[in-house]
Amino acid sequence: MAFDENRTPSNLRQKLSYRLSTSRYVKSLLRRLQFSKIFAWGCKMDPIALAAGTALVGAMATDAWQQTRIAVVSWWGRVRSNQEAEAVRADLAEVRAQVLAAREARDADTERAVAGVWQMRLQQILREDPLLENELRRLLDGELTPALPADEGERIGSLLMKATASGSGRVYQAGRDQHISE
């Protein structure tokens, strides 16, 4: 199901518009990505694209950013083109300044919006060539996650939990804090 502005609930359009208006850069990226063509409402984003986009933005505020940026641009040049990789290099420089300013102002909304844009860019690459998922996972595990501070690195990645209960048994699972009151 493709994005159709007329079928999207108005409050969702307003929220999306508000989030995206936090940055001219975000808007320009969405125009370049042809947002209405690459993002399908109701479609599930690839967890690797979500984690990599989040980790990329988080790494922008670290001392390891220069090394991480080089790795990301190099990866982009391998899976796309050198011309596109140069455009990504420029985009990363511009967005890093915004992420640093957002962190300083404690503006989590802008940081989340920027992460969303990079998640969509990575998702677009995976949609066009699903075989690149392993390469993106290697970039995530080898360059992006190690560049993050410990508290941010713990939030990146995926968690698979399986449980079985029988009889009158109960199962409680949580990826983080869990409070149970019975």
Score class of each variant (00 low, 15 high):
1 M>C: 14
4 D>A: 11
4 D>N: 15
4 D>F: 12
6 N>A: 11
6 N>K: 06
9 P>H: 09
12 L>G: 00
13 R>V: 11
13 R>H: 03
15 K>G: 02
15 K>N: 08
15 K>V: 03
17 S>C: 03
18 Y>P: 06
19 R>N: 09
23 S>Y: 06
26 V>G: 12
26 V>W: 07
27 K>H: 07
28 S>Y: 11
28 S>N: 15
31 R>P: 07
32 R>F: 07
33 L>R: 14
34 Q>N: 14
36 S>Q: 10
38 I>C: 08
39 F>H: 08
43 C>I: 03
43 C>G: 11
46 D>I: 01
47 P>Y: 00
48 I>T: 15
48 I>W: 04
49 A>L: 10
49 A>C: 06
50 L>G: 09
51 A>W: 02
52 A>T: 03
55 A>M: 01
55 A>Y: 00
55 A>T: 05
56 L>C: 04
56 L>H: 06
59 A>H: 02
61 A>N: 12
61 A>T: 01
63 D>V: 10
64 A>E: 08
66 Q>M: 09
67 Q>I: 01
68 T>F: 04
72 V>S: 09
72 V>C: 07
74 S>T: 08
77 G>L: 08
78 R>Y: 06
78 R>M: 02
80 R>E: 04
91 D>S: 14
92 L>Q: 11
94 E>G: 10
95 V>F: 00
96 R>D: 00
97 A>P: 04
103 R>P: 08
105 A>T: 01
110 T>R: 15
111 E>V: 12
113 A>V: 08
114 V>H: 01
114 V>S: 02
115 A>D: 09
116 G>P: 02
117 V>C: 09
118 W>Y: 14
118 W>R: 05
120 M>Q: 06
121 R>I: 01
121 R>V: 05
121 R>Q: 01
122 L>Y: 03
123 Q>L: 07
124 Q>P: 01
130 P>R: 07
134 N>M: 02
135 E>H: 10
136 L>P: 07
136 L>H: 03
136 L>S: 04
140 L>F: 06
141 D>W: 03
141 D>Q: 10
141 D>T: 02
143 E>T: 03
146 P>A: 09
146 P>E: 10
147 A>R: 08
149 P>I: 00
149 P>G: 02
149 P>T: 01
150 A>E: 13
153 G>H: 04
154 E>R: 14
155 R>S: 09
157 G>D: 07
158 S>F: 08
159 L>Q: 13
164 T>E: 11
166 S>Y: 06
166 S>P: 08
166 S>W: 01
167 G>K: 09
169 G>M: 10
169 G>T: 10
171 V>M: 14
172 Y>Q: 13
173 Q>T: 15
178 Q>E: 05
179 H>E: 14
180 I>Y: 13
182 E>M: 07
182 E>P: 04
